[in-house]
Design a protein around this nucleic acid. Structure first.
Lengths: 126, 126
DNA sequence: TTCATTATTGCAACAGAGTCGCATTAGTTA
DNA sequence: TAACTAATGCGACTCTGTTGCAATAATGAA
């Protein structure tokens, strides 16, 4: 997983992801980190953790990039065709374990499918 | 479709979409419009045309919002669970007519599925 | 433990997408 | 033709994310 010094910021970021089932944007993540953690550092850590296969990313509403821990992905064979669900009421984003059937095309080659389901989560439906 | 005065800018935007099979971002659209069309105006027209059900939008790579003409959508019953394909080489985005099977969840309600397929288009594969 | 190496960080400035308030312009209807 | 007001242009702004550079600190070797 590349060169990684065990820094306090790295631990804080990893802990934040381990502490939740949610996917987090850089902004949401920073809300959960101490204020002294620099914005650039957060973005750099997210980038690096994604490169290293620790996190995966995807786009949700409002053009915001979300990150979540990779669970059940090896570094060589990522399984990222799983869907993500975003609640249109509370904006919370979660990973859906269920795999998505990637459509094939007549032309071209499909390498990856990003599926974002939008609707209302159980909590907001009450 | 709301109040729409038939302005030159509106016609230019609609023509740009009619002239292509591609989906266009605001930026790509502006490249195809005369330079005198204001950036704010483009964004406002895209918003309005989406509200009116003339265009639909979705997110592609790099957090960029793309727009395409709605084909076969009524204003009341949009069918926007179709997929979009983006070529990772040339970045071109096209709509895939084929419908996507929207997964159901154990909890919550799914209203919409945004599916972005990424890979290489036929042209770039050669 | 100390030192040298260099990955990591903080800062500040920047870039790009998109929004907004407001005064001006120009379709539309009477 | 005139009045109404939607649409526009402008500029300033917000927000997400990036980058260059100097300072800091984790790590491995001595």
């Amino acid at each position: 997983m590349g060169v990684h010094r065990k820094t306090r910021n790295l631990e804080l970021v990893l802990d934040a992801f381990r502490d939740t089932q949610e996917a987090l944007s850089a902004h949401l993540l920073m809300d959960r980190l101490p204020a002294y953690v620099n914005r650039s550092t957060v973005y750099r850590l997210l980038d690096r953790l994604e490169d290293d296969g620790v996190l995966h990313s995807f786009l949700a509403s409002e053009n915001i990039k979300f990150y979540a821990l990779c669970r059940g992905c090896s570094q060589s064979g990522h399984v990222h065709s799983h869907a993500h669900f975003q609640c249109t009421s509370c904006s919370q984003v979660v990973c859906i374990e269920q795999q998505v059937v990637v459509p094939t095309l007549n032309q071209g080659r499909v390498d990856e499918a990003q599926v974002l389901l939008k609707g209302q989560c159980a909590t907001c439906m009450q």
